[in-house]
Amino acid sequence: MFAILGDIEFTVAGGISGMEWRSSADWAEHARIRGKPLLEWVGEGLDEYNLTIELHPLLGDPQVRLHALRQAKSSHQPLALVMGSGEYLGPYVVTDLSQATRRATANGHTQAATLQVSLREYTGAFTRKVNRPGVIDPSSSSTAQQKDGSPSLISRLTPSPSTTQQVLGHAKTATNVLKAGQNVYDAVKSGNPSMILGQVPQLLGVTARAIEPLQGFKAFAGLLEDGADLSRLGDDVLGNVLGARGSLNPVDLGNIVDRFTASHESLTQAMGKLDSAGPRLAGLAAQVLTRRA
């Protein structure tokens, strides 16, 4: 997760592609006779964040995601802004939403668009809501899960996965995502430049989905006593995936074929490197099965 605003999650795999921070200070200017004006500090200005989010069905339902942000704006309530690292930035309000639609269906549903979200710091009274493990979240009382008798709670008795299991889980997820990505690339490569250009949001989506599991793979592998090689592997594969994304931004009709070829090659290299770790990961899986990890 990249960040969360209230209950709205922003993830790289979900299309967030940029975050801009702006901070200011207020200074009063006083005119002086026969001299330059004098500045006097009045106070600090409000911090602002501007998020850029790509909307596409492969990155999540565009209508649902847009509706959530519209609700956050129209509620006129401050929401806690927390980074994925756990850093609490404070309460913020949604002050502006703008959408640039690039593709839509015949009945007006968004297929591809870029969304700009402006957040502004709120300095009034605010109580941050914190969900505690082991306690049912009251906001989930009307969900289908609870109606089925499965309340949304985190049990303190549920054992946490071991570090080795985390490594294997992230590796499996990343492998599945990359294989799906290869299929998309293979389907697109036979098209003409105009068609390939139109599929760029989809291609960015499939590569974005691989970033989070690869970051998790790299991080947990680094915690293993003998996981330095896997951590380096995760870093290399992640570099290839980021290279595949970078090759597609920016693109136009004149360079799309060359950029697509470079992106496809980077993704193929990522898949090859991850495949090469098969025997190593199988050894870790054996340790888990024999309860040694």
Score class of each variant (00 low, 15 high):
T95I: 08
T95H: 04
T95N: 08
L97A: 13
S98P: 01
Q99M: 13
Q99R: 15
Q99C: 12
Q99S: 11
T101F: 06
T101E: 13
R102A: 12
R102Q: 14
R103L: 15
R103Q: 15
A104Q: 14
T105C: 05
T105R: 13
A106Y: 04
A106Q: 14
N107D: 15
H109D: 13
H109K: 11
T110H: 00
T110M: 11
T110A: 10
Q111C: 09
Q111E: 15
A112I: 07
A113K: 07
A113D: 05
T114V: 08
L115W: 01
Q116R: 11
V117W: 06
L119Q: 10
L119G: 09
L119E: 04
R120F: 02
R120T: 14
E121M: 09
E121G: 01
Y122G: 07
G124D: 02
A125W: 00
A125N: 11
A125E: 14
T127R: 15
R128C: 03
R128M: 06
R128N: 06
N131W: 11
N131Q: 08
N131K: 13
R132A: 07
V135E: 12
V135C: 08
I136D: 06
D137P: 04
P138A: 05
P138N: 02
S139A: 15
S141I: 03
S141A: 12
S142H: 13
T143R: 12
Q145P: 00
Q146F: 08
K147E: 09
K147F: 12
K147C: 04
D148F: 12
D148S: 03
D148H: 10
G149C: 06
S150C: 03
P151C: 04
S152L: 13
I154T: 13
I154L: 15
S155R: 10
S155H: 01
S155N: 07
R156T: 10
T158A: 14
T158E: 15
T158H: 03
P159W: 12
P161K: 10
P161L: 06
P161N: 07
S162G: 14
T164H: 02
T164L: 07
Q166R: 14
V167H: 05
V167M: 01
V167F: 07
G169E: 07
G169Y: 01
G169L: 03
G169T: 10
G169R: 02
H170T: 00
A171P: 00
K172W: 03
T173C: 00
T173V: 10
A174T: 01
A174L: 02
T175C: 02
T175L: 11
N176Y: 08
N176A: 15
V177A: 06
V177K: 11
V177D: 04
L178N: 02
A180N: 12
G181D: 04
